[in-house]
């Protein structure tokens, strides 16, 4: 098992490297550091400030090899040294050592920004994930129980309809309804103060759950229905097991194991929060950090988020395998 984890981590290295290459190409080759500086500093920035900005972040280094270096044979000999001092190597070693750098706009170290945003994000996404999972599984089981009935058909249609509404519309409607009509929940804002934090969380969590309901119920229903067609379900029914017990015992356990492969991978990514939700509700999580970074623009934040996001995803994949092995007696990790 330990050997397995080590191997999986090693297998992830090329992918992380690929992501690092990709972001480097995107941020420093497609767009020159010069253009980046101008967008961050605004149109009124003097060449002087641009140069200082570039120099301070090391972006004034040659991207890979200085163009001048190719001019003579003598320069070629120096390539090895200049190569090491290129922006590419600088960026790669920076990310490889998990040095996320600092914000383009405020200059604050990104690791601090991410640390302070992680908790508010998790407070929203983790309950929403768990609640959403339970509610969706419940509905899906119920629809499988009454499969092919008129109600099941209506449920399928409602799921498709729920899937067709953009998240923003859910939020706008939810804010209008809960805050202005019910006058109970705050429509906006976030304060971490013990139990009273809860009332700021309720509406965003409910909205994430509802907006994801359609797609999840449909997916889980299809998943459980596929289990219903298996031979061992016929065996269980032939033993005289009741329909409810067939569903809650035999179908659910097999279905949940399949569910793990789909759900666990996204678990670590919950820490990144929800972009739109956090912005609408003014929650100071990582989603909002990213949102501000898009508006600023703050390329360092986006680059670091992409890097972190891929690490979290790969971590999620390993976690998936471990959960799978733990839940399914047929799987052994070697």
């Amino acid at each position: 098992m330990f050997a397995y984890i080590i191997r999986r981590v090693l297998f992830s290295v090329p992918i992380v490297f690929g992501v690092m290459l990709l972001t480097f190409f995107l941020f420093f080759v497609i767009q020159s550091p010069d253009a980046m500086a101008r967008r961050v500093l605004g149109p009124k920035a003097t060449p002087q400030t641009v140069n200082t900005w570039l120099h301070n972040r090391g972006y004034d280094k040659p991207i890979i090899v200085p163009r001048a270096a190719k001019q003579s044979f003598a320069d070629y000999l120096l390539i090895s040294r200049s190569w090491k001092d290129s922006l590419f190597i600088h960026q790669m070693t920076r990310l490889a050592t998990f040095d996320l750098g600092s914000s383009d706009v405020t200059g604050r170290p990104l690791i601090d920004i991410f640390k302070s945003g992680a908790l508010p994000s998790l407070l929203i996404t983790l309950p929403a994930f768990l609640l959403g999972l339970m509610v969706s599984i419940g509905f899906a089981l119920y629809f499988v129980f009454i499969r092919n009935s008129a109600l099941d058909l209506l449920g399928t249609f409602l799921c498709i309809a729920l899937m067709s509404v953009p998240l923003m519309v859910y939020i706008i409607f939810g804010q209008w309804f809960a805050a202005l009509v019910l006058k109970y929940f705050p429509a906006f804002g976030f304060h971490m103060q013990g139990m009273s934090t809860l009332k700021f969380l309720l509406l965003p969590v409910a909205l994430i759950v509802v907006s994801g309901l359609g797609a999840d119920v449909r997916l889980f229903r299809a998943l459980f229905l596929e289990e219903m067609g298996q031979d061992y379900i016929r065996t269980a029914r032939a033993k005289g097991v009741s329909s409810a017990r067939v569903l809650l015992q035999h179908v659910l356990k097999n279905g949940l194991i399949n569910l793990i492969t789909m759900m666990v991978a996204s678990l670590p990514f919950l820490i990144m929060g929800s972009l739109v939700i956090e912005n609408f509700f003014g929650i100071p999580g990582l989603g909002n950090v990213l949102f501000s970074a898009i508006q600023a623009p703050d390329f360092a934040v986006v680059q670091a988020s992409v890097f972190l996001g891929s690490i979290l995803y790969l971590f999620g994949l390993i976690l998936t395998d471990l959960c799978y092995a733990w839940a399914d007696p047929r799987i052994r990790l070697h």
Binding site: D231, R237, A238, K239, G240, H250, P329
Partner: peptide, 23 residues
Amino acid sequence: RKLRGGKIAYVFQEPSTSLNPVF
């Protein structure tokens, strides 16, 4: 349900898929 398994029991063709793999 009393009849199934109680009075009339079944053995099916494919034992590898007829037994629930997770129990």
